[in-house]
Computed example of a mutant assay.
Amino acid sequence: MSKQPLKRHKALIPLSHDHHHGLLLCWKIRMGFSKKIELNRIKRYVDWFYENHIKPHFELEEQHIFPILGNHDELVKKAIAQHKSLIKLFTDNEDVEESLKAIEKELSLHIRFEERFLFSEIQRVATEKQLASLYKSHKEKEFIENTSDEFWL
């Protein structure tokens, strides 16, 4: 029996697209390690991605999506704890190699958790009014890639 792909409400699709780009970041980090790319090159890209994509995405989720379930919900608590852990990893400049490895692993797990569990629950319980408000708060923007150093190619 094959698993059916999850059908997302249009209000959550832009966030799922953000998640896709996050998974591509994980792939780029893996490619950087497999090609033995200088760590500072990978870190520069990861820092750019964090500032331009991760931070705004986390803020949007915490301000507009998580309140649908409430801060006392176990899924929301887990997602917020993962956000905090990831922020620490993204901003760690002490052990760059270990931080990058942890980002690759934890970000992937976090995205899969949100897609499979948190977003599914939000979609299940949210009212049409809440989803319409969410849709208005996050119009999908074209993803702009940083092509100054495509170390993963």
Rank of each mutant, 00 (worst) to 15 (best):
M1W: 06
M1T: 10
Q4H: 12
Q4K: 11
P5F: 05
L6A: 15
L6E: 08
K7A: 07
H9F: 09
H9A: 12
K10I: 10
K10P: 09
K10W: 05
L12K: 08
D18F: 03
D18S: 11
H19G: 12
H20I: 04
H21D: 12
H21M: 09
H21Y: 15
L23H: 01
L24Y: 01
I29D: 02
I29S: 03
R30H: 08
F33L: 03
K35A: 11
L39F: 08
N40G: 08
K43V: 05
R44H: 09
Y45M: 02
V46T: 13
F49L: 01
Y50G: 00
Y50P: 01
E51Y: 05
E51D: 10
E51A: 14
N52P: 01
I54N: 00
I54Q: 08
K55Y: 10
K55C: 08
P56L: 02
P56C: 06
P56R: 05
H57V: 02
H57P: 00
F58W: 05
E62W: 06
E62C: 03
Q63P: 02
H64G: 02
H64L: 12
I65K: 05
I65R: 01
P67D: 12
G70M: 11
G70Y: 11
D73Q: 10
D73C: 11
E74I: 10
V76M: 07
V76G: 12
V76D: 13
K78Y: 01
K78V: 00
K78R: 14
A79R: 07
H83T: 01
K88N: 11
K88H: 10
K88E: 14
L89Y: 01
L89W: 00
L89M: 07
D92Y: 03
D92S: 12
N93F: 12
E94I: 09
E94M: 07
E97L: 08
E97M: 13
S99V: 03
L100E: 08
L100T: 04
I103L: 06
K105I: 02
K105P: 01
E106Y: 06
E106L: 15
E106V: 04
S108I: 00
H110G: 03
R112M: 07
R112G: 00
F113H: 07
E115C: 02
E115S: 08
R116V: 02
F117W: 04
F117H: 14
L118F: 07
F119M: 12
F119T: 02
S120T: 15
Q123I: 11
V125R: 07
A126D: 10
E128M: 13
K129Q: 10
Q130D: 12
L131G: 09
A132Q: 15
A132R: 15
S133F: 09
S133T: 15
L134C: 12
L134M: 09
K136M: 13
H138M: 12
K139G: 10
K139Y: 03
E140H: 06
E142A: 13
I144M: 09
N146A: 02
N146R: 06
N146H: 04
S148P: 04
S148E: 15
S148Y: 04
S148H: 10
F151L: 05
